[in-house]
Every structure is written in structure tokens, then in C-alpha cells.
Amino acid sequence: SYYEILDVPRSASADDIKKAYRRKALQWHPDKNPDNKEFAEKKFKEVAEAYEVLSDKHKREIYDR
């Protein structure tokens, strides 16, 4: 789930989600993982997609249904 990707509970606040996104984006940024760039790019995209949905109140409500 998007919550698992960002490592936050379903009850996470918008601020918690933003902090988790920043932490995970740094962790999986391809430039930070030169030895495993392809895998890092995949993870980085997953993190971005999760944040896009969970950071938008309307999209998150739909996702949580």
C-alpha cells in the first residue's frame, strides 16, 4: 500500500506524510544509489506516486475507500 511505501500508519497526518516522503525520497534518490540506480529509480517513483495520492486530501479519501 502507499502507506507501507512511505512507512506511515493510515492515521498519519499530512505533516507526517510530508516528512516520510522527504525521508524516503532522499533514501531512494537515484543519485544517492549509484550502484543500484535502476532499482532506486523504481523505488523513487513508487515513493513519489504514494506521496502524490496521500498528500492530496481528495485523492487520499478515494484511496482509503
Results as ranks from 00 to 15, higher is better:
1 S>M: 09
1 S>Y: 11
1 S>K: 09
1 S>P: 05
1 S>I: 06
1 S>E: 08
1 S>V: 07
1 S>L: 12
2 Y>S: 02
2 Y>F: 11
2 Y>T: 01
2 Y>M: 05
2 Y>L: 12
2 Y>R: 01
2 Y>V: 03
3 Y>V: 00
3 Y>W: 03
3 Y>S: 00
3 Y>T: 01
3 Y>L: 01
3 Y>H: 02
3 Y>E: 01
4 E>W: 08
4 E>S: 09
4 E>H: 09
5 I>F: 05
5 I>E: 04
5 I>V: 11
5 I>N: 03
5 I>M: 07
5 I>W: 12
5 I>R: 05
5 I>S: 05
6 L>G: 00
6 L>I: 03
6 L>C: 01
6 L>D: 00
6 L>H: 00
7 D>M: 07
7 D>V: 03
7 D>K: 04
7 D>L: 03
7 D>P: 01
7 D>Y: 03
7 D>C: 13
7 D>F: 04
7 D>I: 02
7 D>G: 15
8 V>I: 13
8 V>H: 00
8 V>G: 01
9 P>I: 06
9 P>A: 09
9 P>S: 11
9 P>R: 08
9 P>K: 09
10 R>C: 13
10 R>Y: 12
10 R>N: 13
10 R>F: 11
10 R>G: 07
10 R>L: 10
10 R>P: 14
11 S>A: 09
11 S>C: 15
11 S>N: 15
11 S>M: 08
12 A>P: 03
12 A>C: 08
12 A>D: 01
12 A>R: 00
12 A>Q: 00
12 A>I: 02
12 A>H: 01
12 A>E: 01
12 A>N: 01
13 S>E: 05
13 S>P: 05
14 A>K: 08
14 A>M: 15
14 A>H: 12
14 A>R: 08
14 A>E: 13
14 A>C: 10
14 A>I: 14
14 A>T: 13
14 A>Q: 14
14 A>N: 12
15 D>M: 11
15 D>S: 11
15 D>P: 06
15 D>Q: 09
16 D>E: 15
16 D>G: 04
16 D>W: 05
17 I>Y: 01
17 I>G: 00
17 I>S: 00
17 I>D: 00
17 I>L: 08
17 I>T: 00
17 I>W: 00
18 K>V: 12
18 K>S: 11
18 K>F: 14
18 K>N: 13
18 K>A: 13
18 K>P: 00
18 K>C: 12
18 K>R: 13
18 K>H: 14
19 K>G: 07
19 K>V: 12
19 K>N: 15
19 K>C: 12
19 K>F: 07
19 K>H: 12
20 A>W: 00
20 A>D: 00
20 A>H: 03
20 A>P: 00
20 A>N: 03
21 Y>L: 04
21 Y>D: 01
21 Y>C: 06
21 Y>Q: 03
21 Y>A: 12
21 Y>R: 04
21 Y>N: 02
21 Y>V: 04
21 Y>F: 13
22 R>S: 11
22 R>L: 15
22 R>F: 13
22 R>A: 15
22 R>H: 15
22 R>E: 15
23 R>M: 13
23 R>N: 15
23 R>L: 14
24 K>M: 13
24 K>C: 08
24 K>V: 06
24 K>T: 04
24 K>A: 12
24 K>Q: 07
24 K>R: 06
25 A>W: 15
25 A>V: 14
25 A>M: 14
25 A>G: 05
25 A>D: 03
25 A>P: 00
26 L>H: 10
26 L>P: 03
26 L>A: 15
26 L>K: 13
26 L>N: 13
27 Q>F: 12
27 Q>S: 05
27 Q>T: 06
27 Q>I: 10
27 Q>L: 12
27 Q>D: 09
27 Q>M: 08
27 Q>K: 09
27 Q>P: 02
28 W>H: 04
28 W>R: 01
28 W>K: 01
28 W>D: 02
28 W>C: 04
28 W>S: 03
28 W>I: 03
29 H>I: 05
29 H>N: 11
29 H>V: 05
29 H>M: 07
29 H>W: 08
29 H>S: 14
29 H>F: 07
29 H>Q: 10
29 H>D: 15
29 H>T: 12
30 P>H: 05
30 P>I: 05
30 P>V: 06
30 P>S: 07
30 P>M: 04
30 P>G: 05
31 D>V: 05
31 D>H: 07
31 D>W: 05
31 D>L: 11
31 D>K: 09
32 K>G: 11
32 K>N: 15
32 K>I: 10
33 N>G: 04
33 N>M: 06
33 N>S: 06
33 N>Y: 14
33 N>F: 14
33 N>E: 04
33 N>A: 04
33 N>P: 04
34 P>L: 14
34 P>N: 08
34 P>K: 12
34 P>R: 11
34 P>Y: 08
34 P>G: 09
34 P>M: 13
34 P>A: 10
34 P>E: 14
34 P>H: 12
35 D>W: 09
35 D>M: 11
35 D>S: 12
35 D>V: 10
36 N>P: 03
36 N>M: 11
36 N>K: 10
36 N>C: 14
36 N>D: 09
36 N>S: 08
36 N>I: 12
36 N>G: 06
36 N>L: 07
37 K>A: 12
37 K>G: 06
37 K>E: 11
37 K>V: 12
38 E>R: 08
38 E>Q: 11
38 E>P: 09
38 E>V: 10
38 E>D: 10
38 E>K: 09
38 E>F: 08
38 E>C: 08
39 F>W: 13
39 F>L: 13
39 F>M: 12
39 F>S: 06
40 A>E: 02
40 A>N: 04
40 A>V: 05
40 A>H: 05
40 A>Q: 05
41 E>W: 09
41 E>L: 10
41 E>K: 11
41 E>I: 12
41 E>F: 08
41 E>H: 09
41 E>Y: 08
42 K>W: 08
42 K>C: 13
42 K>V: 10
42 K>E: 13
42 K>Q: 13
42 K>Y: 09
42 K>H: 09
43 K>E: 04
43 K>I: 10
43 K>S: 05
43 K>W: 06
43 K>D: 02
43 K>Q: 07
43 K>A: 07
44 F>A: 07
44 F>R: 07
44 F>M: 15
44 F>C: 07
44 F>E: 03
44 F>K: 04
44 F>Y: 13
45 K>P: 01
45 K>W: 11
45 K>A: 14
45 K>F: 09
45 K>M: 11
46 E>W: 05
46 E>A: 08
46 E>T: 06
46 E>G: 04
46 E>H: 05
46 E>S: 05
46 E>Y: 04
46 E>F: 04
46 E>C: 09
47 V>M: 07
47 V>A: 10
47 V>Y: 05
47 V>F: 05
47 V>P: 00
48 A>R: 15
48 A>E: 14
48 A>T: 15
48 A>I: 15
48 A>Q: 15
49 E>A: 08
49 E>Q: 09
49 E>H: 10
49 E>F: 06
49 E>G: 06
49 E>Y: 07
50 A>T: 01
50 A>Q: 00
50 A>F: 00
50 A>M: 01
50 A>Y: 00
50 A>G: 02
50 A>V: 03
51 Y>N: 03
51 Y>H: 04
51 Y>L: 03
51 Y>W: 09
52 E>A: 12
52 E>I: 10
52 E>Q: 13
52 E>T: 07
52 E>W: 13
53 V>W: 08
53 V>E: 03
53 V>K: 03
53 V>Y: 05
53 V>T: 11
53 V>A: 05
54 L>Y: 00
54 L>K: 00
54 L>A: 00
54 L>D: 00
54 L>Q: 00
54 L>G: 01
54 L>H: 00
55 S>W: 05
55 S>A: 08
55 S>Y: 10
55 S>D: 05
55 S>N: 09
55 S>G: 15
55 S>R: 10
55 S>M: 07
55 S>V: 09
56 D>V: 05
56 D>F: 02
56 D>Q: 05
56 D>M: 03
56 D>H: 05
56 D>R: 03
56 D>Y: 02
56 D>I: 04
56 D>C: 06
56 D>E: 06
57 K>W: 10
57 K>T: 14
57 K>Q: 13
57 K>E: 15
57 K>P: 15
57 K>A: 15
58 H>M: 12
58 H>L: 13
58 H>G: 12
58 H>A: 14
58 H>V: 14
58 H>K: 14
58 H>C: 13
58 H>T: 15
59 K>V: 04
59 K>Q: 11
59 K>A: 11
59 K>T: 08
59 K>M: 10
60 R>N: 03
60 R>M: 02
60 R>C: 03
61 E>C: 11
61 E>T: 05
61 E>R: 06
61 E>Q: 09
61 E>W: 07
61 E>D: 14
61 E>L: 10
61 E>K: 08
61 E>M: 11
62 I>T: 08
62 I>W: 10
62 I>Y: 08
62 I>N: 10
62 I>K: 11
62 I>A: 14
62 I>G: 06
62 I>M: 14
63 Y>H: 04
63 Y>E: 03
63 Y>K: 03
63 Y>P: 02
63 Y>N: 02
63 Y>D: 03
64 D>K: 01
64 D>V: 01
64 D>I: 01
64 D>H: 02
64 D>A: 01
65 R>W: 07
65 R>P: 04
65 R>D: 06
65 R>M: 13
65 R>I: 12
